[in-house]
Design a protein around this nucleic acid. Structure first.
Lengths: 111, 111
DNA sequence: AGCAAATGCCTCGTTTATGATCCATACTAA
DNA sequence: TTAGTATGGATCATAAACGAGGCATTTGCT
């Protein structure tokens, strides 16, 4: 399937749009032109525009990097805290079953 | 530039890895196989694997959708709250200057 | 008002991600 | 321990993202 014609839940679409808005707002508040932001992120101006439009097809790395440059944090934590979460998560992950067994019948669908 | 060979700040790399971990963890806890998750997200199993590996080149739409399916919220808010943020942000955005003027000299670099 | 610059939005060529498939290995349940 | 299944990873064809460049419009400064 193509990112263009994929089906998105309203939540992920909203989240995407919101992130885009926040990035755009942060860029303007920091007085960076789209070109300057593009240069700093190592991407093209066109991509910055797509990111600020909330295009679902943009590479997540480009979006996160762009966000970071204008000071937007997906996880509001500093470096050491992030690292802590990373290792803590790794530990938890290590305790979970390595593979998921299909328990015929029900699936956790509560969200 | 290619998503593969792009330069990423340590923060965005960490954020990406953390998100990947969280998604993987949520999938396992919900007892979904990679294939089932892929089917529900309308993507391939291979893409789910790349997402759970934190590949920066994945389309952000696919990642957000996958996250949503396993119950991971990028913004911890419910539908109406999200909508509120969206419109509030639009309003704020409307008040900001439409274009950024290069004020030669200094640039806000404090982050 | 006038002008330089920023933005929005195209198109096109290239590079890349994605889906499909397959295989080897790891794992879980019985 | 064994059988069946999930996972990891690799390859290949195809579809799509990205970069480059251009053009029209809008914007903000003077």
């Amino acid at each position: 399937m193509k990112p263009e014609s994929r089906a998105y839940s309203s939540y992920s679409r909203d989240a995407l749009t919101l992130l885009a808005q926040i990035i755009r707002r942060a860029r303007i508040e920091r007085k960076l032109t789209t070109q300057e932001l593009a240069d700093r992120a190592g991407i093209s101006r066109g991509l910055v525009q797509r990111i600020e439009r909330g295009d679902p097809g943009c590479a997540i790395g480009a979006v996160f990097e762009t966000a970071a440059i204008v000071g937007v944090r997906l996880f509001d934590a500093d470096q050491p805290t992030m690292a802590a979460h990373l290792s803590a998560n790794s530990a938890t992950l290590a305790l979970l079953p390595k593979s998921v067994r299909r328990s015929r019948g029900s699936v956790k669908d509560d969200f």
